[in-house]
Amino acid sequence: MDNRSGESPAQERKSGAAGGVDVILAADHLGNAQEVADGIGPGVKVAETADAVARGDQVVFATWFATTKDLLATYRDQLVGKIVIDPSNNIEPDDAGGVRSLNPDGVSAGQQLSQLLPDGARYVKAFGTLPAEALDATTTDAGATPVLFYATDDKKAGLVVADLISAAGFDPVRAGGIDATGRIEVFGDLHPFGGLDGRLLDRREAERLVKG
Results as ranks from 00 to 15, higher is better:
residue 165 I to M: 11
residue 38 D to P: 01
residue 119 D to F: 04
residue 119 D to H: 01
residue 104 P to Y: 14
residue 40 I to D: 01
residue 101 S to K: 07
residue 203 R to D: 01
residue 4 R to H: 11
residue 150 Y to V: 04
residue 53 V to M: 07
residue 200 L to H: 02
residue 60 V to Y: 06
residue 56 G to A: 12
residue 144 A to E: 10
residue 165 I to V: 07
residue 197 D to R: 00
residue 129 T to W: 11
residue 17 A to Q: 08
residue 96 A to E: 14
residue 193 F to A: 03
residue 129 T to Y: 12
residue 211 K to G: 09
residue 79 L to I: 12
residue 42 P to C: 12
residue 22 D to M: 11
residue 41 G to R: 06
residue 104 P to W: 14
residue 61 F to A: 09
residue 18 A to N: 11
residue 36 V to W: 06
residue 203 R to C: 04
residue 105 D to I: 15
residue 107 V to H: 14
residue 125 K to M: 03
residue 71 L to V: 10
residue 118 P to M: 06
residue 49 T to A: 14
residue 194 G to M: 01
residue 52 A to E: 05
residue 83 I to N: 03
residue 92 E to F: 15
residue 11 Q to A: 13
residue 78 Q to P: 10
residue 10 A to R: 15
residue 144 A to G: 11
residue 165 I to H: 10
residue 175 A to M: 13
residue 23 V to A: 03
residue 105 D to A: 15
residue 138 T to L: 12
residue 16 G to H: 15
residue 151 A to D: 04
residue 21 V to K: 02
residue 25 L to T: 03
residue 148 L to N: 05
residue 86 D to N: 05
residue 114 S to G: 12
residue 97 G to P: 04
residue 5 S to F: 08
residue 212 G to N: 07
residue 94 D to L: 11
residue 78 Q to T: 06
residue 193 F to Y: 10
residue 42 P to N: 03
residue 119 D to N: 07
residue 207 E to Y: 10
residue 33 A to F: 06
residue 113 L to F: 08
residue 189 D to K: 04
residue 6 G to C: 11
residue 113 L to T: 01
residue 179 D to T: 01
residue 147 V to S: 02
residue 47 A to H: 14
residue 18 A to L: 14
residue 138 T to Y: 13
residue 198 G to R: 00
residue 90 N to C: 07
residue 70 D to R: 15
residue 44 V to T: 03
residue 102 L to K: 07
residue 57 D to F: 09
residue 201 L to R: 00
residue 84 V to W: 00
residue 162 A to I: 10
residue 98 G to C: 14
residue 165 I to P: 09
residue 99 V to Y: 13
residue 207 E to N: 11
residue 135 L to P: 03
residue 195 G to H: 03
residue 86 D to K: 08
residue 180 A to I: 09
residue 137 A to M: 09
residue 78 Q to N: 05
residue 67 T to H: 11
residue 120 G to D: 06
residue 36 V to Y: 09
residue 174 R to M: 14
residue 44 V to A: 03
residue 181 T to W: 01
residue 91 I to Y: 12
residue 94 D to Y: 05
